[in-house]
């Protein structure tokens, strides 16, 4: 009994330490966003602002057209997530259920591309996009991101765990491949699809480097890129940057709280159990 309580105590202690470590930057961001500019860099660090500068938020919002950035971010996030889900479902089904010539090799090549670091692809992708004349457009922000090998791999494994008899039963019941995919496989793979979708939404919302490279005008900027507006020749206005960052991160935070159950069960189910 005592032993059990002790080990439980240890577990909670470690978990608490981990949680504090994870939360620290977040708390620091919020605290900085409410400081006056002279307190931001103060040593020793000031955790609780002497005077709460709520106007930092309204001042930050005036620095750049965040409304436009927000709409851009939403459009890019939604479209690239829908696109990725569609391509992932179709590709994963093909790789798990349909026999075609060279399937193994094609899949191996696709997996191989996962080993190429994203930074290496920045320039070739940029060249491609500019040859297509897509610089500074939604296409440039969305199209390169509508397929993910990792997602295909994840969903393919999930599809493999669906017994073959189910597809036989569906065939006998009058399903074509496409109907079977739509009416049986997709509903069954819902947890995996939610996981893939959430990862995509988070990744897409936070994407910085690619939008920075392919957009020039303010009209096309997304929120993370917009945050660079606080970096001026005179230095970085940290209190405003942090205020804006807090606002940018808010939708993700809300999403996480709503979908927490799915994120955790989705990751657990697709990662550990078939």
């Amino acid at each position: 009994m005592g032993k059990e309580a002790l080990s439980k105590g240890m577990i909670y202690l470690l978990l608490s330490l981990g949680a504090i470590l994870m939360l620290l930057p977040f708390v620091w961001m919020i605290s900085t966003s409410l400081k006056a500019s002279n307190e931001v860099m103060a040593m020793p660090p000031i955790w609780i602002p002497s005077e709460w500068q709520w106007e930092n938020y309204s001042r930050a919002a005036e620095v750049a057209p965040f409304g436009k950035y927000f709409i851009n971010s939403v459009i890019v996030t939604i479209l690239s997530t829908i696109g990725e889900l569609l391509t992932t479902i179709l590709a994963a089904y093909a790789f798990s259920r349909i026999h075609f010539y060279g399937k193994g090799i094609v899949f191996a090549v696709l997996l191989g591309t996962m080993m190429v670091p994203g930074e290496v692809l920045l320039i070739p992708n940029f060249v491609t996009i500019s040859n297509l004349g897509w610089i500074d457009s939604y296409e440039a922000l969305i199209v390169p991101w509508v397929a993910s090998i990792f997602s295909i791999f994840l969903l393919r494994q999930y599809f493999f765990s669906v017994p073959k008899e189910l597809s036989y039963a569906a065939k006998v019941d009058g399903c074509s491949d496409f109907k079977f995919l739509w009416y049986v496989m997709v509903p069954l793979a819902k947890p995996a699809l939610i996981t893939i979708g959430l990862l995509k939404v988070i990744g897409s919302w936070n994407a910085f480097l690619w939008p920075l490279i392919v957009t020039n005008s303010q009209e096309m900027r997304t929120l993370p890129v917009g945050l660079s507006a606080f970096t001026t020749e005179a230095g970085v206005k940290y209190e405003l940057l942090m205020a804006a960052s807090s606002m940018v991160i808010l939708p993700m935070l809300i999403l996480f709280f709503i979908m927490q159950k799915y994120i955790i069960s989705g990751v657990a189910r697709t990662g550990i159990k078939g």
Partner: peptide, 20 residues
């Protein structure tokens, strides 16, 4: 003819019901 055209009913060892 493909399975869906033959007008057959089939019962499998592991039942193969749609779990969802």
């Amino acid at each position: 003819w493909d399975a869906e055209k033959r007008g057959i009913g089939m019962v499998f060892q592991n039942y193969a019901l749609y779990p969802h």
